[in-house]
Design a protein around this nucleic acid. Structure first.
Lengths: 238, 238
DNA sequence: ATCCAGCGAATAATCGATTATTAGTGTTAT
DNA sequence: ATAACACTAATAATCGATTATTCGCTGGAT
């Protein structure tokens, strides 16, 4: 599957045909996930409308959708804003993932078919061959690596065959990524590549217990790395 | 000296303070959950706007939120509609709950404090004392019982102390209730009250394993009762 | 009789403008 | 000098109307 990030809406079929609110929505979502706004920043409908060349209603609809996904906060009569995740919030998200994902992975390993195996191999290959950092793309993970990383973890879980569970995991992943983006700019080096390789091996060997345990450790270490390394500003506010 | 009245003397917080979209949203949500619309029914913005006495934009915003919660489908350029859950969809939801809720319940039982224990007792008491059916409220569970039922299960899980997990469970519960409403009008009598009592007992006895297992059976039986019994369309009824 | 093109009503999507609420600023009374 | 009040500017929320798309229908050709 191709990444929806690099979307070139240029063909006549997609440019004039798609609903405006959809385009504005995905643009807004990408911008927030990309870190274009600082946490707490106000998302002003008027500015966005002018930027995108659309009316307020369209922007408003997109904003409501974004709020529904937890990628923005809505303050009644005070507009929309990028959420400012507290340290506590981040821990809750990490714990939720740690609670759910290993269980789903276990299901996935037990149920995945040959096509799933093939997709896992492909996703891991792509992840392993994608450089995590590129100098010109800022100090954070490269966009390509982030997408490959997401795709790998997503693919691992897809064997479970349950869209409801997958959507739940997607939602948590999104929240996790957003929180991570603003928790620390660089994760202290750990051998993530090795962990991913071990995940792939356990999954393809149909060793559900090992896979679940490796994933749990993977998530635990990610959480520890972020909560351990204090961000730039230890927030003292609620 | 406290006379901050300028010229718009509005009554204290009761009259027109809440956002319209919020009111329309909750009304719409309740109507769908209550079963006021049949699955597949179109949700026409114009009709709703006239009914509620508001403009299209407000209705539209509410509809987008409802779609975000999975309580309505959006068909591009074809408007909004009440989702028609397939049997498969219902099974997926049931399985997702079965996968996640027992794990969360285990956490809850292990972590819940005394306040949580008290709330569990209270919620169970209310559930046990609320009649499941009332003649004048149609053929389905009474509104009061549905709410008490939801509150009991919710309270059981609340001990986990993780809002992210709780929101995940809420979402699944909502989807489950909606699907159930249209899967069968009456669940063949089983001793749900007994199951609830056993859940309460295990939870308060801090027996996490038993509680999780009882919940798993509870969910399995609910699922079985619905998929086993005839769906809402008795096509070959002669 | 059946199938496809073209017309027309219904309605989804969008827009531009209006009203209501909030936050900031300056003023005045203590 | 400070604190409360009044005023103003910004913008959130809502509305009424306009444009674009889909669906159903009629009519003609095969």
């Amino acid at each position: 599957m191709l990444a929806p990030m690099t979307r070139t809406a240029h063909t006549p079929a997609s440019s004039g045909k798609q609903m405006l609110s959809e385009k504005v929505y995905s643009h807004l979502r990408d911008a927030i996930m990309r870190g274009s706004y600082a946490p707490g920043d106000a998302l002003k409908p008027q500015d966005l409308a002018k930027e995108q060349g659309v009316s307020l209603a369209v922007v408003r609809e997109a904003l409501v959708r974004v709020v529904g996904e937890g990628l923005a906060d809505r303050l009644p009569n005070r507009g929309f804003a990028v959420p400012a995740f507290s340290d506590r919030r981040w821990q809750e998200i990490a714990e939720a993932r740690l609670t759910v994902e290993p269980v789903v992975l276990r299901m996935s390993v037990e149920r995945g078919d040959v096509d799933w195996e093939a997709r896992v191999r492909a996703a891991h290959h792509r992840l392993a061959r994608t450089p995590a950092y590129v100098p010109e793309e800022g100090e954070y993970y490269s966009g390509a690596w982030s997408e490959a990383h997401r795709a790998f973890h997503r693919t691992l879980l897809e064997g479970c065959g349950n869209p409801v569970l997958l959507e739940t995991c997607d939602r948590m992943w999104t929240a996790s990524e957003l929180a991570r983006r603003w928790s620390a700019h660089r994760v202290p080096d750990r051998d993530a590549a090795c962990e991913h390789r071990r995940l792939e091996e356990a999954a393809l060997a149909r060793d559900a217990d090992t896979a679940a345990e490796v994933l749990a450790r993977h998530l635990t270490q990610t959480a520890a790395a972020l909560t351990g390394s204090t961000p730039h500003q230890p927030a003292g506010k609620a």
